[in-house]
Nucleic acid binder design. Structure first.
Lengths: 327, 327
DNA sequence: GTGAAAGCGCTAACAC
DNA sequence: GTGTTAGCGCTTTCAC
């Protein structure tokens, strides 16, 4: 159905290798021949079969992308950044959604690894050993996860939490609750630690409220414990949790921000739309995606394939209505 | 780096062809040999190179998926459905996001078409001729778009609008505004027509308010015209628009649902979380994704590749706070 | 039931 | 500068 390199060769009256050269290394071929080949290719709508090319060059021009859950708006943003940067490099993206299932993660990585040049793993839930194992087989870049000897793009949680604490301290809060996300989430640990350290430095008290699913319902469920903790402000694992938490607060007649302050992390679109709008540590999600692709490309061009420098991106506190009033 | 069929053959003490058979047509090989091959494959972590296999079988085991904008929560849901169904069939998914750019759409389809068995195009913005052209080259299934002779999965907009109108009429509304989405969107036309027809049948008046971007900001921008129209209720192109519209209404001190009723379409997660929660025509997004994959699989198995039967999925009105009160 | 040989579409080495 | 040859990893005749 689709035309091959030989069709073009026949039409242009040259050999297949000349077609190949004319298309991928135009300098190496006579100008006249080149034009003949190019117009023939044009006329046939020819485009090389990348699978066949990959077989011989060892480069497929494809990358794999694994995310835990597309329904969490954080990930589509990262995916968009990755897409955009990959397309600019003429690279196609395999996407897999694991549904937050670590076992599925392992299977999907193995399945995809064979047909891609490298993989980007977003917030992987897999264990350290598994990730190290992946990186031995394939070029891997991590997003929102740090593992020794594997390239990664992360966010500066320490500084983000410092900003959040500074803001809450300035509003007069003395006791802050932390609502944690999935126990297997690397960033959960980072954020909790960042918050604890920043609070200690500022002389504030932190109450940790268990682990909750990283969704609206998780926040909704956490709210009552947060209130019972005696805190006057809360920082949550992510925006979705914060929004769910605010809904429960509202249902109980607790006013945000008059009675309570809420700070999220991520800055998903929904946070602007919430009422009151959510104060949050904004993370450069699309940029993280773009940077991840760049790291991966560097890794692919690097003959020994050692991990390039990892990148840490800054977060920025966006103050909105959910922390507008002093307690 | 990765082991090939010959490595397995050597370890099992058989030929490559036997390995191939033992793995893909286990019946055709002696039980003892089969076990030897399978354990050898296991030990080496062998998985066939799908590109190489595709070269000879003509089937890559991959499908392409093109969506206009992952930032619109409607699409991640569909993508999740597609992913899940594809994975069950051991099929990998190439994902491309066009950023609502029809030109990018064409380019991406062409680029992907070569390395996939078929493509799913979600809410494509491309013209009729272009889509027909695609379908001539590749197996194509459309989601949320209907084109003659191309298989598709759509939602029953006519019935959905009938439900919405029935609800609003029962609340006592006599004059309903319609806020349209992108002019190039097929479903925009369908929904507008569905609403108009249902309103006519029920003896209600419809005021159409132009075309707006299918986002929060579009709804925010449309609100003032909606109010000026003299309508007491509004149906919007999608939930995002409805939520933006409600925000502007709120900013102007117009109470939903006391002064105004709002109905969206899609039922994205955010609609449950909005305050007041949004009444909306819920669309089975994940199911649409699953069905699209099934249609595509049927198309691939069909030797003459003619368009299979298209499927239309029902929508269901979910009544929430945004239409709770009679005007 | 199994192996040897051919070939999918392409590119890279080697001749010329 | 261009054609010929070989081969990427796999499946599929065709012999045996």
């Amino acid at each position: 159905m689709s035309s091959t390199i030989r069709d073009v060769a026949r039409l242009a009256g040259v050999s297949a290798s000349t077609v190949s050269r004319a298309l991928s290394m135009p300098e190496m071929v006579n100008a006249a021949t080149r034009e003949r080949v190019q117009s023939a290719a044009e006329r046939l709508g020819y485009a090389p079969n990348r699978a066949a090319r990959g077989l011989i060059t060892g480069r497929t021009g494809n990358i794999g992308l694994v995310v835990p859950d597309l329904a969490n708006p954080f990930f589509p943003s990262v995916v968009k950044g990755i897409q955009a940067r990959a397309r600019a490099a003429d690279i196609a993206v395999f996407l897999a959604d694991t549904d937050e299932d670590p076992a599925a993660e392992v299977g999907l990585v193995r399945a995809l690894a064979k047909q891609v040049d490298g993989m980007i793993l977003c917030s992987p839930r897999a264990g350290l050993d598994e990730l190290t194992g992946f990186a031995a087989d394939t070029r891997v870049v991590l997003v929102n996860r740090e593992v020794p000897d594997i390239g990664s793009v992360t966010f500066d949680n320490t500084d983000g939490m410092r900003q959040a604490v500074g803001h809450l301290a300035a509003l007069g809060h003395r006791r802050i609750a932390w609502v944690g996300g999935p126990a297997k989430s690397w960033s959960d640990g980072e954020r909790a630690r960042g918050l604890t350290d920043a609070a200690a430095a500022a002389g504030l008290e932190v109450v940790k409220i268990g682990h909750f699913p990283p969704h609206y319902d998780g926040g909704y469920a956490a709210a009552d414990q947060v209130v019972a903790s005696g805190a006057t402000a809360v920082v949550t694992y992510n925006d979705l949790v914060a929004i769910g938490l605010m809904a429960r607060l509202d249902a109980r007649g607790i006013s945000v921000p008059n009675d309570f302050s809420v700070v999220g992390i991520d800055d998903i679109a929904m946070s602007r739309m919430a009422r009151p709008a959510l104060t949050t540590v904004s993370l450069p999600k699309q940029q993280a995606g773009r940077v991840a692709v760049e790291l991966l490309l560097a890794l692919l061009d690097d003959p020994d394939g050692s991990a390039g420098p990892s990148r840490q991106l800054p977060g920025e506190l966006i103050v909105r209505g959910s922390t507008g009033v002093t307690p």
